Simulated scan of single mutants.
Amino acid sequence: MTQARLMDGTALARRIVEETAKRAADLTERTGSAPCLATVLVGEDPASVTYVRMKRNRCRTAGITSRHVPLPADTTTEQVVATLRELSADPGVHGILLQHPMGPHIDERAAFEAIAPQKDVDGVTFASFATMSFGLPGFVSCTPGGIMRLLDEYGVDPAGRRAVVVGRSAILGKPAGMLLLARDATVTYCHSRTTDLSAAVREADIVVAAVGRPRLIRGQDVKPGAVVIDAGYSPGNVGDVDFDSAVERASLITPVPGGVGPMTIATLLEQTVDAAARQLGV
């Protein structure tokens, strides 16, 4: 069997960011206000610090102003909520990104819900999940949104296909399944309690691996010709899929890195400009 084609998220993300930069420049010229993304980081976890720095650098590339709000590791839930409500009320801020995960002492859901829906460009609130699920105007969770853009780029129509989503997190697995369902896929969610995961995956025309367990999906589990989207990442550039074996059976597959990751950031920037345009009335 021919090896799978790689789904190049880096190249597609670059094009999206270039288009987003043009829109941001036009918006700034027309309104006198540049789109602004506020990033909030609790503590100094090295990975989180790196992610936030990367996102702020991409903002500069796209002509988006970034405002960073660092908070000490011992910040309470109440303090995080107060910070997010303040940013939500600030007309100079158009989008808000709360970097997660946070410490176990913080109620993450309460923090997310302090973000105004019109500024939830990361798609993490109840309101965003609801509008996404019902196909109404709003913001999608960035990683699932990026996954759908990749499928479109490579001509993969989910309609009528069996899609298996491995993982059920509120901002990745669950919304990915809902977006696929909205495109008429038949969706199965799998998770840590699923019996015989391999059997479920073998039925899938589209596999979305989003569980955070390195090399959980093996090549022998992949249906020949399936489309494999690896949204996992573990140290050492390892995804949730055993790439070397899966690439021999899939028709399309995302690499790690260079697949889903760049699309997540590109979607965040695009939605920030969308949010600014709505708030500025243009």
Rank of each mutant, 00 (worst) to 15 (best):
V238H: 04
A246L: 07
H94K: 02
T83A: 04
S66D: 15
A170I: 15
R5V: 12
L216G: 01
G92R: 05
A250C: 13
K55A: 04
V208K: 08
A163E: 11
D230K: 08
L150C: 09
T77E: 08
A266T: 10
H94V: 04
S48F: 02
G95M: 12
C36N: 11
A62M: 08
L97I: 05
R60G: 03
D242E: 14
S234K: 06
V81D: 10
V256Y: 07
A170V: 05
P235I: 05
Q3Y: 10
S33G: 01
S33R: 06
F129D: 12
A163T: 14
A170K: 09
D196L: 06
E29V: 01
G259S: 14
R193T: 02
T39L: 00
A170W: 09
D8C: 05
K22P: 01
L252R: 12
P91V: 15
G138T: 14
V165H: 14
A266H: 14
S133I: 14
I106L: 14
V52W: 03
A250Q: 15
A277N: 08
A266G: 08
F129C: 06
A11Q: 11
V121G: 07
A116R: 09
P35W: 14
M178G: 05
V42W: 14
N237M: 13
R30E: 02
G212E: 03
V52E: 07
P175Y: 04
G63F: 09
D8G: 02
V165S: 05
F126Y: 05
D45I: 00
T188G: 07
M102T: 09
L97W: 11
M263N: 13
R161A: 05
D26R: 04
A185H: 11
G167Y: 14
T61G: 07
L41T: 03
G32F: 02
T61L: 15
R23F: 07
N57H: 07
G219N: 04
T131Y: 13
C59P: 02
G225M: 04
D74H: 09
R149E: 12
A89D: 14
A200F: 02
A226E: 12
R202G: 13
H100M: 11
V228G: 00
A111C: 14
G173R: 15
G236P: 11
S133A: 13
T186W: 12
E44P: 00
M102I: 11
R60L: 12
D26Y: 01
M178F: 14
M102R: 06
V80G: 01
A210F: 13
I147G: 05
